[in-house]
């Protein structure tokens, strides 16, 4: 009986110890003593030892349980605070309905349940957009390498609907990640999608040949499977930093559903 209790105690404590802040020193010793006392006679010294053991086991166990409870409570509270903060930011809470590079209509709802890395830009962009999309593509490829992670959906939304029609996007996506989806629509639809992420976009003066450059927000957004904006990455964030951050978000996100 005592032997069983000790083993049970050991298993429980061992499990707890891995994630708790307290490490009661008598435990390893205790296990040893348990084995020593197994099958022993009921002398008064042994009984005393048995009582002492029981008391310290109960005491230590409840202390660990209490500690664990506080730890879990704190974690839960932190998650709740983070969620509330994200809701308050209220970025990307709206919907969008746009056409992808194959002409298929895609709405925000279609991406629920998937991790999304989102970038706003335009196909006539001289250097920043292709560089950022290259970075985004290699980050997604790096994340693809990890079999434990769900696939991350790379997404591009144009800020230049006048020129970026469906065929223009079909040509453009060929240069980037094979899963990249590029979206366009009417100027109103595109503006609506951008406004949800507080994207600034302003077309510059036109050349003689009608060419122009669109000045716009240069950020990569991370959107969680529940459609919440979770993080953003600017120009100075390297591919490695993005991969690391996305991995952390995915890992921690498992807790959000609990």
């Amino acid at each position: 009986m005592l032997g069983l209790r000790c083993i049970v105690g050991d298993v429980v404590c061992g499990g707890l110890l891995r994630r708790t802040c307290l490490r009661p020193p008598p435990l390893p010793q205790l296990t040893q003593r348990c084995f020593l006392s197994k099958g022993g006679s009921g002398s008064s010294a042994r009984l005393k030892l048995r009582t002492r053991l029981l008391v310290s086991l109960l005491f230590g166990g409840s202390l660990l349980a209490g500690c664990r409870f506080v730890y879990l409570e704190k974690q839960q509270r932190q998650r709740q605070i983070r969620l509330d903060q994200l809701r308050k930011v209220s970025l990307g809470q709206g919907t969008f309905s746009l056409l992808d590079q194959t002409g298929r209509r895609r709405t925000k709802r279609d991406f629920l349940g998937r991790w999304v890395l989102l970038y706003f830009g335009f196909t006539h962009c001289p250097d920043i957009c292709p560089e950022e999309l290259d970075k985004l593509s290699s980050a997604v490829s790096a994340l693809d390498q990890d079999p434990l992670l769900p696939p991350v959906q790379p997404l591009f939304i144009t800020v230049d609907p006048q020129r970026d029609d469906v065929p223009a996007l079909a040509r453009y996506v060929q240069d980037f990640h094979p899963r990249l989806l590029a979206l366009t629509g009417t100027p109103e639809e595109v503006q609506h999608a951008g406004r949800d992420y507080r994207v600034y976009a302003s077309a510059g003066p036109k050349d003689d040949d009608g060419d122009y450059i669109v000045d716009h927000t240069v950020l990569i957004y991370l959107v969680s499977p529940d459609g919440l904006f979770l993080d953003y990455y600017n120009r100075s964030k390297s591919e490695e930093k993005i991969v690391e951050s996305v991995k952390n978000h995915i890992r921690n996100h498992k807790g959000l559903d609990q």
Partner: peptide, 14 residues
């Protein structure tokens, strides 16, 4: 006028 593709972009950057 269509946007430059990746090899045209690279030629320009080079």
């Amino acid at each position: 006028m269509s946007a430059p593709n990746s090899s045209e972009r690279k030629a320009c950057w080079d």
